[in-house]
Amino acid sequence: MIDRVFSTVVFAAAALVVAALVWVLTDVVSEGAARISWAFLVTEPRDAGRAGGIAPVLVSTLWVLVIALAAALPLGLGVAIWLSEFAPKQRGFAAYTGITLDVLAGIPSIVYGLFGNAFFSVYMGLGYSLLAGGLTLACMILPVFIRTCESGLRQVSDDWRQGAWALGMTRAAAVCHVLLPAARPAILAGLVLGIGRATAETAALLFTSGYVDRMPESPLDSGRVLAVHIFDLSMNVTGGDGAAYGSALVLIVLIVLLNGLAQSLVDNWFKRRISQ
């Protein structure tokens, strides 16, 4: 009897959650699909975004993402490699760095926005620009990216390290040719997490890359990313909901596409390293 009641409650709760989540998803997909067309993607917005498309917004989004990844990936991989392969184990500086990363990962995104505004926009004189926004995002995604890559490298079997050393390979060669390819899934997961967070981020970009919805000509121009566009359309533009849903669907599809792209790029790159 009690078992019956309990399992009914469990199934009802699961159904409720599934229903709510499916509701959100279908809403976004159906409302958005009604709005999306080729013209929507390639034309400039008109009438504060109610009409027209999102071309400059897409371009700004990609700019910010590219800048963020270009800054975060090499830096993040480098730090992860040092922490897992070179640093003295769990002592002194390396341990402090670990704590530092966890602390950085805990800062809310809006606070990264405040920092980015104070440091990149004002102190470094970049103003409201795609560069300032991208660098702010890089700071934001770095800690998690480093942590995922580091733990992926640490999980690589010590047998391979020993094997490489016993063959007289340098640590650096072991990392490049053996350990990084072996840690591929974790690096990919870190990359996907980073892309997801960077593409979805709004709060950190409000006062770093700005609102301007013109087509950016250089990374020093201000530009409006998709997430900010959605926010602006739904909050500040009456009658902008349709375009907002269209942009929301584009944003979700973009994230999924970028993840797929990252996956195939990383796979290809490593495949070349693995066979040759």
Partner: peptide
């Protein structure tokens, strides 16, 4: 250079997760 002259084989086979050819190619290149 010393480890090139004194090789080592371990208890558990530890070929690198690379192709058969590259397992041998890599140390030569290095």
């Amino acid at each position: 250079a010393l480890r090139r002259r004194i090789g080592m084989i371990f208890q558990r086979p530890n070929p690198f997760p690379l192709s058969i050819r590259r397992n041998l190619d890599l140390p030569l290149k290095e």
